[in-house]
Design a protein around this nucleic acid. Structure first.
Lengths: 229, 229
DNA sequence: AATATTTATTTGTAAGACAAATTGATTTAA
DNA sequence: TTAAATCAATTTGTCTTACAAATAAATATT
């Protein structure tokens, strides 16, 4: 399979297996407004009859949708549309970037900068308070403060409260940590990190999206530049 | 199922079905470095033996991974890890936001702002040229220019060349258009749009991430404010 | 050497059966 | 009457077996 054929194949041909067609039909329930996030789907047995497919094909479709975080299935209760996709799909997707440090760093950059901009609009007083407490905890920490650092970033990511993309932050930070765990950091400088977190915090407090973005960008670029690669 | 129980259930319990466990094992091939993007997996029959599960369970896992864009399967050839997840997973995920206009707008905001920041570092001369041509095409357009507008945003999103997240742009713009198609825009002002696109272009040409972000933010906020909702 | 046909490989689909999880209904005991 | 225990029903979970479909590779024919 040469490069040109591979490219065409991936872009122009969508596989029309039966299970894919079942996925389409289920998703169309959402797209058409017949059902919405939180609603229950019919049981497997009923869907089999309704869609006129075998049970294995139906299960392939439903389990795929569950892996994508679009539905949640439970024995004896049934299958429900979710209202947010969570972190699992991203954890699995990110596995294809394992070993590709540049891609992981860039994914982190683009995601966190987008989420912090959104957070500047949407952050609650409670989350601002938690950020403040986090900064104070980092000031007082003696030794490893990476969990505190991580929590700062998590608070921001979740404060945007976005059902599709907020879930990427945990798997992304996990993958980032795992990718970098064998790479020495030049200098860990807690004071500098605290200062940068404080700048981000103040921009968020001021609900200034551009300042939030700029300070987070400064911080993430600084983090990147400390990598000796 | 009350709210507290639902919350705990979603966060603390990961379903341990066999097909999920198979997914873990396959993903671990990537995480451990045994296989990488582009590599071929063993056939279904071989994986059945290796993992000691039935064929339907194995298929559930493999088809789920394909729906997530992590593998690509083809009759007689086999199953391969992909090097980018593409747009299909996002198209399906975004279905749960159907009807939630605020969430869709916010997703667009956070994703496009993250991607444009990345583009400022990574954009090629070719893509800059394409943006320039796109702006010129919009200036000359008579009548509907929404496809040209859309292409401007697509070029930027793909110029970041990120294998995990670039795929969101098409489904996102589709969902955005679909959500807004029955909402009247106050004033379509081509000149203003061209001007804003030009500002974004210039920031990208200058490879200035902050300016790129700021101009894109200005543009998307302007677009948002024209909605009469 | 080029074309056509056949074979082999791998995924795709289905039917049937039983198991596991667990909520809801019924029965029993206090 | 209430609480606890037990049983039944519902839905998902897993497996075996069989055949179909798609198509690249191998073989035969021209």
């Amino acid at each position: 399979m040469n490069e040109l054929q591979k490219d065409l194949n991936m872009k122009t041909v969508k596989r029309k297996t039966l299970s894919n067609q079942v996925i389409e039909q289920i998703i169309d329930l959402l797209m058409s407004g017949q059902l919405k996030a939180g609603d229950k789907l019919p049981s497997e047995m009923k869907l089999m009859d309704m869609l006129n497919v075998s049970r294995p094909v139906l299960r392939e479709a439903l389990i795929s949708l569950e892996t994508l975080g679009v539905v949640h299935r439970k024995t004896r209760e049934g299958t429900f549309f979710t209202d947010r996709v969570g972190s699992e799909p991203y954890r699995i997707m990110l596995a294809i970037s394992m070993g590709d440090m540049e891609s992981i760093i860039e994914t982190r950059l683009s995601q966190e900068l987008g989420l912090v901009t959104l957070a500047a609009e949407k952050i609650t007083e409670l989350d601002l308070k938690r950020l403040e407490e986090n900064i104070r905890a980092m000031e007082e920490a003696e030794g490893d403060y990476s969990e505190i650092d991580r929590e700062f970033h998590r608070i921001i990511a979740f404060s945007g409260s976005n059902p599709i993309t907020e879930g990427i932050i945990d798997p992304l930070l996990n993958m980032y940590d795992k990718t970098l765990e064998n790479i020495p950091l030049k200098n860990r400088d807690k004071e500098k990190t605290v200062q940068q977190h404080r700048e981000i915090y103040e921009a968020l407090e001021n609900r200034d999206p551009l300042a939030a973005h700029a300070s987070m960008h400064r911080h993430l670029v600084y983090v990147r530049e400390r990598l000796s690669y």
